Amino acid sequence: MSGPQGAPREHHPAWWYGDVPVPLHARLLAGLYAGAGALRRRLYRVGLLRQQHPGIPVVVVGNITAGGAGKTPLTIALVERLRAAGWNPGVASRGYGRDNAKRALWVEAATTPREGGDEPTLIVRRTGVPLRADIRRAAAARALAQAGCDIVVCDDGLQHYALRRDVEIEVIDARRRYGNGQLLPAGPLREHPERGRRCDFRVVNLGGPGTPTLNGETGFGEWPMRLRAERAVPLSGGRPRSLSDFAGQRVHAVAGIGDPERFFAMLRGLDIAVVPHAFPDHHRYSREDFEFGSRLPVLMTEKDAVKCAEFGSDLFYAVPIDAELPEAFWVALLSRLTQTRTAYQHPTP
């Protein structure tokens, strides 16, 4: 799954983020995509398609680009910070890649990634939060409210307009931003950039140590997020190791996320000699995927690790990622949510 000499293979069209002409067929399909999206949004605006709300505050974490931008680390950080502030959060998720996507279910620590999806399984195992996987996120939000949660965090739901929300958080990858600025499939955008600017908070994922960025800074009204990785957790059990133990060593690095290079760059920033192995987002692993031809430590993202426990040996490690944001971001967000909760508890006559 890697390119020549270990170079990671891109899993998106070259024209999305490169100086490559967009093919005519992609431009034509993008026009159809834009028309369909505009019609759907209009139907919600005029009420022909109805939005639903669970009666408790709803926070949506998402992005307007296809692929990963750092939503899952932010969702985990949000759950932990809400709990520390006295909230009882629940997470609503589609559970992308589940075997039976049409069946709603509660994702628990013992749920397999095939049953619950890789990202929901990771979120639950990291936080223990109540998580409802349902392609109908509005139904998932209602179930969480009925289960006693007092706030819903919707993981990856900016385009799921059936669920009415109180706060929207857009996550942007600093290295890629909006690519060529065109809609799918001519570019990486699900919606036009103006959609992101209408979100209440815009978080820019600057990555971790040594991660390259296109502009290095966030823009006006954007909050910076850094990803911190400090330990490696053996898949076969045992005590975690400090990532500094791997400094100066060659390792196989495995990432099946939206932007694998972000993970590889993070490890390189810690002076780890990376042999990169990039896989498609949400890849389902087999033993054959790990026949690398050399016996080196294997460092992988947590999202990949939850799917690889059965292949784990004493050389396989998961690398937990923690999201760090300015304290001012949390103050602003929690203040907004407190006002929202008060409005639901004491509605205006």
Rank of each mutant, 00 (worst) to 15 (best):
G208M: 05
Q182C: 12
A323D: 05
T112K: 00
P209Y: 08
V167W: 01
R9D: 07
N180E: 12
W15G: 12
A36F: 10
R98P: 10
F290K: 00
R125E: 02
R226E: 14
V60K: 01
P8G: 03
K71Q: 13
L74I: 11
R136F: 05
E194I: 10
A66E: 08
R226C: 09
F279R: 01
H12D: 11
G116R: 00
P349R: 15
R137L: 02
L105W: 00
I76H: 06
G90L: 03
E168Y: 04
V61K: 01
L49R: 08
H277D: 03
A328Y: 01
V204C: 09
R94Y: 03
T111W: 00
I151W: 02
L131N: 01
V124E: 06
A141L: 07
L105V: 03
P89F: 00
P57H: 12
Y344S: 05
Y17E: 14
V124G: 03
V331H: 03
E288T: 08
A332P: 09
D281A: 04
A186W: 13
A138F: 04
R9A: 12
D155V: 07
C149G: 09
M225A: 11
I257S: 09
I172V: 15
P54N: 10
G210K: 04
V167R: 08
I172R: 03
Q146R: 11
G3T: 10
K303A: 08
E10T: 10
M1R: 05
A14M: 13
V331Q: 04
Y161S: 02
G216R: 13
R142T: 02
C199R: 04
R9G: 07
L158V: 10
P23V: 14
P130L: 00
A174E: 15
D156V: 14
L43W: 14
G207M: 11
V107W: 00
V274M: 02
W106C: 00
A7K: 09
R202M: 10
M266W: 13
S236V: 15
W87F: 11
R268D: 02
A110T: 03
A323P: 11
P8W: 07
G157V: 06
G55T: 14
R42F: 02
E222H: 07
V319T: 07
S93F: 04
R195M: 10
W330Q: 05
E288Q: 12
N215L: 15
P209N: 05
V306R: 00
G187V: 15
R50V: 08
A92W: 09
L315C: 06
P193D: 11
H25C: 15
P240Q: 06
A110R: 04
L315T: 07
G216D: 13
L184C: 12
E191P: 04
D200C: 04
R228P: 09
P73E: 10
A140N: 03
P185W: 15
T112Y: 00
A343W: 11
G31P: 12
T348S: 15
P224W: 06
A7R: 11
A328T: 10
A323I: 05
P185H: 13
L32H: 11
A14Q: 12
Y317M: 02
G157S: 07
V331D: 02
F292Q: 02
W87A: 14
R126Q: 08
A332I: 01
